[in-house]
């Protein structure tokens, strides 16, 4: 079933998988997710649930009275035992395996030589905050809304995808110094 587990030989550490081949494998992963669990993979839902879980531990009353947290805290299996949390655990393992096989394991801050690594880290943090905020609002990010939504023709998925990429192109000019 897991055809995506095929090991790609990586003689040169810089060499990535052929994008179309990777895309077809990605499609198989999506199909497998829908075939077995009836849903597509996501990502932003995991931090959302973990955060709700932490809030419920630190301030249980606050979590109970918040319409937002209580939805996750009182879900069937609670905020921790969730499909998305296990899936993201898998993403970390899978990414590590791929990185190890192709010799890309290295602790570093990747940034353009024109900016300092401190600046890169600051904007990465900011981007993470913004992305998760937007994903919580739109009920999904590039994985859960756009990609999984595309596989099942969800209108919301296509709208979210266009808004993400449209927004990124819209703002790209103002942040070009960070990258090029």
């Amino acid at each position: 079933m897991e055809r995506e587990g095929v090991k790609m030989p990586h003689p040169d550490p810089k060499k990535y998988m052929n994008p179309y081949l990777a895309g077809v494998f990605l499609g198989f992963v999506l199909i497998a997710a829908f075939y077995f669990s009836g849903r597509g993979p996501g990502a932003s839902g995991a931090p959302k649930r973990v955060t709700a879980g932490v809030v419920a531990v630190v301030a249980p009353k606050h979590a109970d009275h918040s319409a937002y947290y209580s939805k996750y805290v009182h879900s069937e299996n609670g905020p921790w035992k969730s499909w998305l949390n296990f899936e993201i655990l898998g993403v970390i393992i899978g990414g590590f395996i791929s990185g190890a096989l192709s010799g890309r394991l290295k602790i570093k801050v990747e940034h353009s030589p024109k900016i300092t690594s401190r600046k890169r880290l600051f904007w990465a943090l900011t981007g993470g905050i913004l992305f998760e905020y937007g994903a919580s609002m739109a009920r999904g990010c590039t994985s859960g809304a756009a990609l999984s939504g595309m596989a099942v023709w969800a209108t919301g998925g296509f709208v979210t995808m266009l808004a993400i990429f449209g927004g990124a192109y819209l703002f790209a000019y103002f942040f070009r110094k960070l990258w090029i």
Partner: peptide, 13 residues
């Protein structure tokens, strides 16, 4: 204490 109920919050990403 409330019994855990089946609240569907599947999906989303």
């Amino acid at each position: 204490p409330r019994r855990k109920k089946k609240v569907t919050v599947s999906g989303g990403c």
